[in-house]
């Protein structure tokens, strides 16, 4: 075991633990970005340059920022001293420890530990980006097309899911005139009505004020 591996492993594991136990969610997102960066360096150390750089681009660059945006959009008014853990955290920790113990026993008893530490014929091999691109365009071109389709669907679906409910069915202006929920609160947490389930009650009330019109539009869409 080389010291660089030990360092990167400790960095990654510490980042992961800190990300999942952080008191402030934004700090957790930054620790998670650190863990992802440690994993990217591990990939680079294994000779997978392309995957390491993709990991930095996608995870450290995009997913971490996406998580920060989601945290800011769902920032609740409750204090950070609110209950962070579920009802029985020891059960979850125990299950996690059991999973790790089972995997570790399986790994240490398998034939993997007797394998040579580094295969001789692959010492000089490193996968250049040109090789990766050629392989993507010839052997794996169907998977490449499929993942393009999946990413397009995820883009459209994510935008559609995150849209406001009133805006999604194209009836925002009429809804806005009839109910206060339609225009005032778009995309932003509203101060809730006292003692009411905020959004669902508000929508139902708005629909009642608007009469059958809103109901018909909702059913048609």
């Amino acid at each position: 075991m080389r010291p660089i591996f030990l360092f990167l492993a400790i960095l990654t594991v510490a980042g992961a633990v800190a990300a999942l136990t952080a008191r402030q969610l934004v700090h957790g997102a930054l620790y998670l970005a650190g863990a992802f960066a440690g994993l990217a360096l591990l990939y680079l150390g294994l000779g997978a340059q392309f995957v390491g750089l993709v990991q930095i681009l996608v995870y450290v660059g995009a997913v971490a920022i996406l998580i920060v945006f989601a945290i800011l959009l769902t920032r609740s008014s409750e204090s950070p001293q609110a209950q962070r853990w579920g009802r029985a955290p020891w059960v979850g920790l125990g299950i996690g420890g059991l999973v790790f113990g089972a995997l570790a026993v399986a790994i240490l008893n398998s034939a993997v530990t007797q394998s040579p530490p580094w295969p001789a014929h692959s010492v000089t091999m490193d996968a250049t980006v040109a090789q990766v691109g050629r392989s993507l365009m010839t052997d794996h071109v169907v998977a490449l097309e499929a993942i393009g389709l999946l990413l397009t669907a995820a883009l459209i679906g994510g935008a559609l899911i995150a849209l406001d409910e009133g805006r999604r069915f194209g009836g925002a202006p009429e809804l806005g005139e009839n109910s206060p929920d339609g225009t005032v609160t778009r995309g932003m947490p509203e101060p809730s009505h006292p003692g009411a389930l905020p959004r669902s009650e508000g929508d139902r009330g708005g629909g009642a004020h608007a009469g059958g019109h809103g109901e018909a539009r909702g059913g048609g869409a």
């Binding site: 594991v13 999942l20 294994l46 579920g86 955290p89 240490l108 394998s115």
Partner: peptide, 27 residues
């Protein structure tokens, strides 16, 4: 060079940490 099973153990540990976090946290 680092042997293969160290990488596998690290991956198992990361998986267990993520699993325990997903099970225990409320947010």
């Amino acid at each position: 060079m680092t042997a293969l099973h160290y990488y596998l153990l690290l991956a198992a540990l990361l998986f267990a940490i993520g699993f325990a976090g997903a099970l225990t946290r409320r947010h």
